[in-house]
């Protein structure tokens, strides 16, 4: 199974200057179900596709609120994300306690990176197998950061990580100039459209498998799930020119699209 001799721990570089364990961790991020995020002048939005491990199970949790001004979406090992989210909650709370100031999004991202980096430099520890999108609002407005297991975080206008996220990214790249001026609803719709584009035709976003996290300059972080997301999803499908039978006008009569 070993690719070569340089991938059994994170303290050994390959002759090409690569740390394979870190790259494998990043592969774990790519296996997770997709999450998308974007920012405008006034809002930051996260949307996620939730997987159901099996027919009888519940859907996984993809978006976690950290504080009233900040939340994350995850792709990869959910258990690792839980550990990291607890760390972030502690950091955020500590900022309130010592300075009476909400932690800045850049600041908490850097602290997260510092922690993740140590796991890329010590034998006997493994990198976090999860990537995060960190969305929040601070003194300098709304922000979106993309965090990787390598201990790297990058500020983004829009971002997507997880399985089949390339299609979503392509869509986001086309819209890159538009995001800044979007209002809350439009921003949600566009991130949902990116999510739709990443999925095969037969995979339909429903109120079971989709969650949305929104935060704005004058609005604390809110996680939308279930019925609350339906309007947004319908609107996204309408703009995509697709109408899955679940959302067709006469769905109640059991009718379907031609």
């Amino acid at each position: 199974m070993f690719r070569n001799n340089y991938d059994s721990d994170t303290t050994t570089f390959s002759p090409q200057g690569r740390l394979f364990q870190v790259e494998y961790a990043q592969a774990a991020v790519g296996q997770g179900s997709i999450v998308v995020g974007a920012v405008s002048k006034s809002h930051a939005v996260l949307v996620a596709l939730k997987r159901q491990a099996e027919e009888l199970s519940s859907y996984q949790k993809k978006i976690i609120q950290i504080d009233s001004h900040l939340g994350i979406a995850l792709s990869g090992l959910a258990a690792d994300a839980r550990v990291l989210s607890n760390f972030m909650k502690q950091q955020s709370m500590a900022s309130h306690m010592t300075y009476d100031r909400p932690i800045s999004i850049a600041d908490i991202s850097v602290r997260l990176c510092d922690r993740a980096q140590t796991h890329t430099q010590h034998a006997g520890s493994r990198p976090y197998g999860v990537g995060l999108l960190i969305a929040g609002v601070d003194g300098k407005g709304p922000h979106l950061f993309e965090f990787q297991p390598s201990g790297d975080a990058q500020e983004m206008v829009a971002a997507s990580i997880g399985a089949r996220s390339q299609a979503a990214r392509t869509f986001l790249e086309d819209q890159v100039k538009e995001f800044e001026s979007m209002d809350e609803a439009t921003l949600i719709t566009y991130t949902l459209r990116a999510l739709i584009r990443s999925q095969p035709e037969d995979k339909v976003l429903s109120y079971d498998n989709t969650s949305i996290g929104v935060v704005g300059l004058e609005k604390s972080f809110k996680l939308l799930e279930g019925e609350e997301i339906l309007e947004h999803v319908k609107r996204a499908y309408r703009l995509e020119g697709r109408a899955p039978e679940e959302y067709s006008e006469n769905a109640d009569e059991g009718g379907s699209m031609e």
């Binding site: 800045s104 999004i105 850049a106």
Partner: peptide, 9 residues
């Protein structure tokens, strides 16, 4: 020195 902190204390 911190570029990350959002506003002056």
């Amino acid at each position: 020195y911190s570029v990350t902190s959002s506003t002056e204390l």
